[in-house]
Simulated scan of single mutants.
Amino acid sequence: MSITAQNITKTFGKQKALNSVSFDIKKGEIVGFLGPNGAGKSTMMRILTTYYKADVGEAAVNGYDVLKEERSVQKSIGYLPEHNPLYLEMYVKEYLAFNADVYKVAKNRIAEVIEQTGLTPEAHKKIGQLSKGYRQRVGLAAALLHDPDVLILDEPTTGLDPNQLIEIRKLIREIGKKKTILLSTHIMKEVEAVCDRVIIINKGEIVADKRLEELREAEEQIIEVEFDYRVEEVLLNQLPNVKSVKNTGGFIYEITFNTAKDMRPAVFDFAHDNKLKTLQLSRKNKNLESLFTELTGE
């Protein structure tokens, strides 16, 4: 196992942030750690990265005990915290060189991670001049410098615009082909976009642990589509396998289908046949949304 946690409990004053949390993550998995704000996600990640010590329980990363083998754990993980601690006055290459010295890795790794994370166009700039999306890339590059087997990413897409979201998600999926990734988020679309499995935590306790494949097998789906013009709902109801149609505002519609087959091509063809432009088209996993709402009350 790349990550194991057994009966982890952590209390801050009178507040129990984690209550007997247990899970295992296999090598090569991308796992979404999903939960409302304050559910205990960041606390668990800080225990796995040795920033916090659990009051009760045991945890290991790559076989190294987080309490007894801190240095080995730190060497085997790349960590991107929620609030990415960057030195804004440093140049990108300068900052990565500083981190390379800390990890005692060869300087040629700097050019490799700059290319890997798509930083080449901005590598000559100061970090303070970069957009939030590129700053996140710098944080990822620093986390990858020592070529760790495990990446722990805490809310890596917070504050990004839609284009930056797509870029960072694509980057995480690419990195996940070779590494184990634990990704903390409170955004369900994030999990659906990049993860193989989801662990849902609420009020410090694990309330669900499922593979995304299981959730996608549900015989019901929601397609969210935005057209460039208002459409009569009666027309959308004529699409095959439609259960319901809902206008959620403006020219945006949620269409629920009674089938596991991906209905996005049918919606796209509908737009084309009716001379409409499709401004956005996405498939929601209703089962995940329903599960999250049921288990967290959100």
Rank of each mutant, 00 (worst) to 15 (best):
I3E: 02
T9M: 11
G13R: 10
K14M: 10
Q15D: 07
A17E: 08
A17G: 05
A17H: 04
D24Q: 05
D24P: 05
I25W: 05
V31G: 13
G32T: 12
G32R: 05
L34C: 03
L34Q: 04
G35T: 10
A39W: 04
K41E: 12
T43P: 11
M45Q: 11
T49D: 08
A54I: 07
V56Y: 07
V56G: 09
A60L: 04
N62Q: 14
Y64G: 14
D65H: 13
V66I: 14
E69L: 02
E70W: 05
R71T: 15
Y79G: 09
N84I: 12
P85V: 04
Y87A: 13
Y91N: 07
Y91C: 07
Y91K: 04
V92E: 11
K93S: 09
Y95N: 14
A97P: 06
A97F: 03
N99D: 11
N99G: 04
D101F: 01
A106D: 13
K107A: 06
R109S: 11
R109Y: 03
A111W: 08
E112S: 11
Q116H: 01
G118R: 02
T120Q: 11
S131N: 13
G133M: 02
Y134S: 06
R135V: 08
R135F: 04
R135G: 12
G139V: 01
L140V: 05
A142T: 12
A143Y: 07
A143N: 06
L145P: 10
H146Q: 09
H146E: 10
E155I: 00
P162G: 03
N163H: 01
Q164R: 01
I166K: 04
I175N: 08
K179H: 10
V191H: 02
V191I: 15
V194P: 02
V194H: 03
V194E: 12
V194F: 01
D196R: 08
D196K: 05
R197G: 03
I199R: 03
N202L: 05
G204T: 00
I206M: 11
A208L: 01
A208G: 01
D209S: 13
D209T: 13
K210A: 10
L215N: 00
R216Q: 12
R216C: 02
E220F: 00
E220I: 07
Q221I: 15
Q221K: 01
E224S: 14
V225S: 09
E226G: 06
Y229A: 04
R230L: 15
V231I: 14
E233W: 07
L239D: 14
S244E: 10
T248N: 12
G249Q: 02
E254T: 06
F257Y: 15
T259A: 05
K261R: 07
D262C: 06
R264N: 00
V267C: 13
D269V: 13
F270S: 14
K275D: 15
K275C: 11
T278K: 02
N287H: 13
L288H: 02
E294G: 03
L295P: 03
G297E: 14
